[in-house]
Write a protein that binds this DNA or RNA. Structure first.
Length: 109
DNA sequence: GGTTTGACCCGTT
DNA sequence: CAACGGGCCAAAC
C-alpha cells in the first residue's frame, strides 16, 4: 500500500478506520503506523489533523483511556459526550473501558 | 541540517 | 497520590 505515505497520512487513515463504539490509543496507532514509540508524533498528527478528513479524533485516547485536553475539542465534556453517543463505555473514574472498547485494529487492507 | 515542540509513556522522587 | 523528569519519534521552523 501507500507505504510511501508520510507518517501523518498513515495515522489519518488508521483513525478514519476506527469504527463506532471503539477507541484506539496513541501508542496503538503509532504501532500500526510502523512506529511503536511514536505516540507523541501521533498526537502531533492529530494537532494538525484537518476537519475535512472527518477524523474521529475523539476516538483516540491515551494509553490508560483518559481523554485529551478538552480545549482541543471545543469544551470540557464534549469529547466524552461524543464517545458516549457512539456507545463507548466510561468507567466511574472518568476513563474509557479499554477492555471493552479498544479497537481491534485494521481488519485488513 | 540543527533546534523546538507536541492531544504521549514510563519510571522515579 | 501528585509532581517531575527523561526518553521516544516525526514534522515544522
Amino acid at each position: 500500500m501507500t507505504q510511501k505515505a508520510p507518517f501523518f497520512a498513515r495515522v489519518y487513515r488508521l483513525v478514519a478506520q476506527i469504527p463506532e463504539g471503539k477507541v484506539a490509543t496513541y501508542g496503538q496507532l503509532a504501532a500500526l503506523a510502523g512506529q511503536p514509540r511514536a505516540a507523541r508524533t501521533v498526537g502531533w498528527a492529530m494537532q494538525g489533523a484537518p476537519r475535512e478528513l472527518d477524523l474521529p479524533c475523539h476516538r483516540v485516547v491515551n494509553a490508560i483511556g483518559t481523554l485529551s485536553p478538552p480545549l482541543v475539542f471545543g469544551g470540557a465534556g464534549v469529547q466524552r459526550e461524543l464517545l458516549e453517543n457512539e456507545g463507548i463505555r466510561f468507567l466511574e473514574d472518568g476513563r474509557i473501558d479499554l477492555g471493552a472498547s479498544l479497537w481491534d485494529g485494521p481488519i485488513a487492507e
